[in-house]
Amino acid sequence: MAVTGAVLVLFLVGHMLGNLKAFLGADSFNHYAEWLRTVGSPALPNRTLLTIAEIGLVVAVVLHMWSAVSLARRAAKARPVKYAARVKPQAGGYATRTMRYGGVIILLFVIWHLLDLTFGVVNPKGGQATPYDRLVAGFAPDRWWVTVFYLVAMAMIGLHLRHGLWSALQTLGLAGRYKALKAGSTAVSAVLVVGFIAIPLAVMIGVVK
C-alpha cells in the first residue's frame, strides 16, 4: 500500500508540474507532450521511457488496489459479527473514512480522464487533435459537468493523499514528529489539488483558451 502509493504520488507531482505548462501557451504545452514521447532519443527509440513509466504506473495501480482489497478482506474476516450500535468514529479522521470508496471514485475518474484527454474517445476534438486543443475543448464552458466531475475527483484525491501520505510514512516506520508529518502531508495534498484544479478552472473561465 505504502510503496505503490509513493510511486503514484511521485507521478502526481510530475503530472501536476507538467500540466502547469498550459499556462505558458499552446506551444509550450504541446512541446512538453512531444518531449515526453521523444525523451532519450535518438539513443532510445521514441516512447521508450514513456512506455516504461506507463507500465510502472499500471503495475503500481494494480498492486495498490490488490493491497486495498486484501486489507478490506482481512478486516471483514477479523470482525465477523458487527456492532449493533452505530459505531461512532472517535479519531475524527474524515479523510481516513473516504479511503476505500474514495479510491473507487478516483479509479473511475482515471478511466474517464484517459478516455477524455489521452485517447480522446470522449473528447469533442477526438484523439487526433493536439493535446492543447483537447484540453481546451474538454473543459469548455458548455462542458461544465466535466469540470465539476474533475473538481469532485480532485477533492477525493486530496482527501486520499491527506491520509495516504502520512499513513505511508507511518507504515514505512517514520515515527517521531507526528504533527509535522501530518501537517506536511496535508500541505503536499493541498498544493497538488490546487495545481490540478487550476487548469480546468482556467479553461472554463477563459484564461487558458
Binding site: 474476516k77 468514529p89 472517535q90 479519531a91 491520509h163 507504515t171
Partner: peptide, 15 residues
C-alpha cells in the same frame, strides 16, 4: 491470530 491489518485510522489511540 487473525487480527486485521493496520490502516492508521487512529481509532485505537482515540479510545
Amino acid at each position: 491470530e487473525g487480527f486485521g491489518g493496520c490502516t492508521n485510522t487512529g481509532e485505537c489511540t482515540a479510545v
